[in-house]
């Protein structure tokens, strides 16, 4: 998918910002698993222009786990028999909500 709509946003990395101010610099391609971020970056919206996405309702703890998942998916997308990612039980409800928000439900 062509994500390079704008010169400012065509960088290899994008920045994800949490409610509490944590910033995560992620490989753009790794975030493409999320249709939400994908849509965010392909149109002509502010995020696409700046390459910076702010999520005012997601905490740094959760966003970190989400980013971890992006990387995990990116590294292992073509492999078989990959062991599951470690999910702390206490975060799982919040993560489910975040997964829904990021559209991570129907991918694999």
């Amino acid at each position: 998918m062509d994500t390079n709509g704008d010169s400012a946003a065509s960088g290899k990395y994008i920045t994800l910002v949490s409610r509490d101010g944590w910033e995560f610099v992620v490989l753009r391609e790794a975030t493409m698993i999320s249709p939400t971020i994908k849509g965010m970056l392909r149109g002509q919206f502010a995020e696409a222009k700046t390459g910076r996405c702010t999520f005012p309702e997601i905490s740094g703890v959760i966003l970190e786990k989400v980013v971890e998942y992006f990387q995990f998916w990116y590294k292992n997308q073509d492999k078989e028999d990959v062991s599951d990612m470690d999910i702390p039980v206490e975060l799982c409800l919040e993560l489910l909500v975040a997964a829904d928000y990021f559209g991570l439900d129907k991918q694999y």
Binding site: Q44, A48, T54
Partner: peptide
């Protein structure tokens, strides 16, 4: 064609 000043995240949310 003024989408540039809108936050996608905000609208999506």
């Amino acid at each position: 064609q003024n989408a540039g000043r809108l936050s996608f995240e905000h609208l999506y949310r």
